[in-house]
C-alpha cells in the first residue's frame, strides 16, 4: 500500500489577511495552499470580501481587454525588413572577406 501525498491544510484567514492577498491571488502568484485559503474565505464572506475581489477582477478584465490593437504598418514592416536585409548583406560580406 502506497502512502497518499498529504495536502497541506489551508490556514483560516480573516478579512484583513484575505484582502492583503488580493492582487497576488488575482494574478495567480500565490502557492496553492494560500489559494485554497482565500477561496474558502471568499465562500464564507459573501457580502464583504467576495464583492471586493469581484470588483478588482472586473477591473483587471477591463484593463486586459483594453490592450490596443496595433498592426505594424506596411511602411514600418518595410523599414524593419530593410534593416534585416542590410544586416544579412553585411554579415555575408564580412564572411566572404574572411575567406
Amino acid at each position: 500500500m502506497t502512502a497518499q501525498p498529504t495536502m497541506l491544510e489551508p490556514p483560516v484567514l480573516d478579512c484583513e489577511q484575505t484582502v492583503r492577498l488580493l492582487w497576488d491571488y488575482l494574478d495567480q502568484q500565490l502557492p496553492e495552499v494560500d489559494v485554497r485559503a482565500v477561496d474558502q474565505h471568499l465562500l464564507e464572506c459573501k457580502t464583504r470580501c467576495a464583492p471586493h475581489f469581484a470588483f478588482e477582477h472586473a477591473f483587471l478584465e477591463l484593463v486586459h481587454t483594453a490592450r490596443p490593437r496595433v498592426i505594424a504598418s506596411d511602411t514600418l514592416r518595410a523599414r524593419v525588413r530593410a534593416l534585416i536585409e542590410a544586416d544579412q548583406h553585411e554579415s555575408s560580406a564580412g564572411a566572404q572577406s574572411h575567406e
Binding site: R67, V70, A72, V80, I84, Q88
Partner: peptide, 18 residues
C-alpha cells in the same frame, strides 16, 4: 532569428505605442 523577430513585429509595435 530573422523570422522570429519579424513575427513579433505587431507585438513590439503595440508595446512601443503603449
Amino acid at each position: 532569428f530573422e523570422d522570429d523577430a519579424l513575427r513579433c513585429l505587431d507585438d513590439v509595435a503595440r508595446f512601443a505605442r503603449s
